[in-house]
Lab assay of single mutants.
Amino acid sequence: NQESVVAAQLIPINTALTLVMMTTRVVSPTGIPAEDIPRLISMQVNQVVPMGTTLMPDMVKGYA
């Protein structure tokens, strides 16, 4: 089963992602794949992401 990127903390809107903000977990439905974490660093979220929420492609500016 593929791991997806999950918020390790509350991420406010327009925050640039850092490694410490993200963790990985096997979730359903699947979100952004864990191997894309290096690509996500410094990208901004376009909404508030509560802790434990799976990051979906449409939540990250410039990802999709």
Rank of each mutant, 00 (worst) to 15 (best):
Q9F: 06
I13T: 07
V49D: 00
I41V: 11
N1V: 14
A16M: 15
A34W: 06
I41G: 02
E35D: 13
I37P: 00
S4R: 02
D36R: 13
S28I: 05
A16R: 06
T15K: 04
K61H: 06
P33V: 10
R39M: 09
T54W: 02
V5M: 02
L40T: 02
Q44E: 07
L17I: 06
G52R: 06
T30F: 14
T24E: 11
V48W: 10
I32N: 01
T18P: 00
T53G: 12
E35W: 05
R25L: 07
D58Q: 14
P38R: 09
T24A: 13
V49S: 01
S4Y: 14
T15N: 05
V6K: 03
V45K: 00
V48T: 13
V49E: 00
G31L: 02
P12D: 06
S4C: 11
L10V: 10
E3V: 06
T24I: 12
G31T: 02
G62D: 08
D36L: 13
G62R: 10
P38Q: 07
Y63I: 03
T24D: 03
L17C: 01
V20F: 11
I37K: 14
A64T: 15
N14R: 06
T53F: 13
T30R: 03
S4N: 02
Q47C: 07
V48E: 13
T18I: 04
T24P: 11
M51H: 12
N1T: 15
P50D: 12
M22F: 08
Q47A: 07
T15A: 08
D36H: 12
M43R: 11
N1G: 12
L19F: 13
D36A: 12
Q2W: 15
I37D: 00
T23A: 12
R25Y: 14
I13S: 05
T15W: 04
Q9W: 07
L17S: 00
T54P: 05
I41R: 06
N46D: 07
A64W: 03
M59K: 02
R39I: 08
A16T: 06
I13M: 09
Y63S: 04
T15I: 04
V49C: 15
Q2V: 14
M59S: 03
P29D: 12
Q44P: 07
R25W: 10
A16I: 05
P33F: 11
Q47M: 10
M51N: 09
V45F: 01
M21S: 03
P50R: 07
S42A: 13
G52C: 08
A8S: 10
T24L: 10
L55R: 01
I13V: 13
N14F: 11
K61D: 05
P50W: 12
P29G: 12
L19T: 08
R25P: 01
L10Y: 10
P33R: 09
T54Q: 03
G31R: 03
T53E: 10
G52Y: 07
M43W: 05
M43V: 08
I11V: 09
G62C: 15
L17N: 00
T18Q: 05
D36I: 07
P57R: 04
Q47D: 12
M51D: 10
D36S: 14
T53M: 14
M59L: 04
L40E: 00
P57Y: 11
R25A: 15
S28N: 08
V6M: 05
V6S: 04
P38N: 11
P33W: 08
E35Y: 06
M59Y: 05
G31N: 01
V20W: 10
M59I: 13
V49G: 00
L10Q: 09
D58M: 14
K61G: 05
T54V: 12
E3H: 07
T54F: 02
S42R: 08
V60I: 11
V20C: 08
T23N: 09
R25H: 05
V20R: 13
I11H: 00
T18K: 11
Q9R: 06
V45H: 00
N46E: 09
I11M: 05
K61T: 09
M51V: 05
V48S: 14
M51W: 09
M21C: 03
T24N: 08
P57F: 12
A8P: 01
V45T: 10
T23F: 11
V45N: 02
V45D: 00
T24S: 08
M56C: 15
T53P: 01
A7Q: 01
T23V: 11
I32R: 01
T53R: 13
M56G: 08
P33L: 06
S4T: 05
T53H: 09
G62T: 06
P57L: 04
S42T: 05
I32C: 05
Q47N: 06
T54E: 02
L55M: 12
V5L: 04
D36P: 00
S28C: 14
Q9C: 05
T30Q: 13
I32W: 02
V5W: 02
I32H: 01
G31E: 02
S42E: 08
M51L: 10
I32V: 10
V6L: 08
S28L: 04
G62E: 07
T18V: 04
P57M: 13
T24F: 14
L17M: 08
A16V: 10
T23M: 15
M22V: 10
V49R: 02
R25S: 14
M21E: 02
I13A: 09
P50L: 11
D58E: 14
P38I: 09
M59A: 13
M22K: 00
M22L: 14
I11T: 01
V60C: 03
M59W: 15
T23Y: 14
V27H: 03
G31C: 04
V60A: 02
S42L: 04
P38C: 05
I13L: 11
V49A: 03
A7I: 02
N14H: 09
L17F: 02
L19V: 07
I37Q: 07
M51E: 10
V26G: 08
D36T: 07
V27C: 04
L55F: 11
M56W: 04
L40N: 00
V48A: 12
L55H: 01
T18C: 04
Y63L: 07
Q44M: 07
M43N: 08
N46I: 08
G62V: 06
P38G: 12
G62L: 12
V49H: 01
V27L: 08
T24W: 13
T53K: 12
P57E: 08
T15L: 03
M56R: 12
Q47P: 02
V6W: 02
S42P: 02
M21R: 04
P12K: 05
V6P: 01
S42I: 02
A8K: 09
V45M: 03
L19E: 06
T30A: 12
M43F: 13
M56N: 07
P29K: 06
L17W: 01
L17A: 00
D58A: 15
L55D: 00
T18S: 08
V49I: 15
T15C: 04
M56Q: 12
Q44F: 10
T23R: 14
S4A: 03
S4K: 02
V49F: 02
M43C: 04
Q9V: 05
Y63D: 03
Y63G: 03
P12I: 03
M43P: 00
R39K: 13
A16W: 07
P50G: 11
V26Q: 15
V20L: 07
M21I: 03
P29Y: 10
M51C: 06
Q47R: 13
I37M: 12
V48Q: 14
M22D: 00
S28F: 10
V45P: 02
D58K: 12
T23K: 14
R39A: 06
A7T: 13
A8G: 06
R39W: 06
M51F: 10
Q2F: 12
M22P: 00
Q2M: 12
V6H: 03
I37Y: 05
S42V: 03
S28A: 13
G52E: 09
A7K: 01
Y63A: 03
A64R: 06
E35Q: 12
N1Q: 11
M22A: 01
M59C: 06
V20G: 05
T30G: 08
T30H: 11
L40H: 00
A34F: 05
V49Y: 01
V26L: 13
A34K: 09
N46A: 09
Q47F: 04
V60D: 01
R39G: 08
T15V: 05
V60N: 02
E3F: 11
G62A: 14
I32K: 01
P29I: 14
Q9L: 08
M51P: 06
R39F: 05
L10F: 07
V5R: 01
M43Y: 13
T23S: 15
A34V: 09
G31H: 02
N1E: 15
P29A: 08
R25G: 15
N14Q: 05
L55T: 01
V45I: 04
I41W: 14
M21W: 05
L10G: 10
M59R: 02
S28R: 02
Q47G: 05
N1L: 15
Q9P: 01
Q2G: 15
M22R: 00
L19S: 07
N46S: 15
M56E: 08
A64M: 14
G62Y: 08
L10M: 12
M22S: 00
P29V: 13
L10P: 07
A16Y: 09
T30P: 14
A7R: 02
G52S: 11
V5K: 00
I41T: 09
I37G: 06
M21H: 04
